[in-house]
Design a binder for these strands. Structure first.
Lengths: 152, 152
DNA sequence: GCTGAAAAGCGAGTGGG
DNA sequence: CCCACTCGCTTTTCAGC
């Protein structure tokens, strides 16, 4: 589907505030309520808008220890890859799992309470996944910027 | 502030669906409308809930080329660090900027349309930031998991 | 901190231009 | 694409426990 300029502006607003009213949008974009409403519904149906979520502040919720964990698999067989990706998806501590080019196969962004919890995670969860070969941890000193927004 | 069990359950729901009604929550958690409502408002005031946002599907919005860009600064002086972080915050292509331990100073998650746009980004935006020394790009083959949710 | 009920505001759908 | 109008639901507030 193709997004025109107005669609993109709507997305810019909704990515900042899921609860903005259609009325406010219609003021900002000089368009009628109905038009805005239909465009939003269409983008929801098409999957352009995936979902609406609340973002929680990790500092205020005991989840402020963040690590980038580099993972190598033992063997690059299809079954291994699938198994790893399936198991990783189940782990709540893993917010992101990226299959990457370069020295490692995957980079995980892991978010837990503290160093101790991280150790628990690596020992009892991550390294018990069979295809995992080696891992290497890069600690995040500061999350300078963290956005969920694609700017159009 | 401390979050009790009910608060945490509310957060689990809201992180999946910002638009869930207080009524639905009151059913799930066996609590009155007003009680749920007050807990949510309190967490919003305290900043436990940062904001409500719409998540856009990058595949359907021409932003499906993702790169982890490792950055070294030329000199680790306070001014350099501050300047870099200030400039990076302005770049819409950079969704995440993490100050990390290890061989590099920062890891950026950059999200653009395609390889050409990425090249433009590196040449005309990233490397024109003064304190940037060297950069190294790790391409994301597949975003296996991408979550905004902290599980309680 | 909880409940229940009443008031105000918004979303979703309709008919028509 | 816009306007005007409903209806029903959700949010918000208020009294009282």
């Amino acid at each position: 589907m193709s997004l025109d300029k107005i669609d993109k502006e709507i997305l810019n607003f909704l990515q900042d505030d899921a609860k903005i009213t259609t009325k406010a949008l219609s003021n900002h974009l000089q368009l009628s309520l109905t038009a805005i409403h239909e465009r939003i519904k269409k983008m929801e149906r098409n999957g352009v808008i995936k979902k609406y979520v609340a973002l929680v502040n990790p500092q205020k919720a005991e989840k402020d220890f963040k690590v980038l964990c580099h993972v190598k698999l033992i063997l690059h067989k299809k079954q291994n890859i699938q198994k790893f990706e399936r198991e990783i998806a189940k782990l709540d501590e893993v917010l992101e799992c990226m299959h990457v080019s370069g020295d490692y196969d995957y980079i995980l962004k892991v978010q837990v309470k503290d160093m101790l919890s991280y150790r628990e995670f690596v020992l009892h969860k991550l390294t018990t996944i069979e295809p995992v070969g080696s891992t290497q941890s890069t600690f995040i000193i500061d999350d300078v910027k963290h956005s969920t927004r694609l700017k159009f």
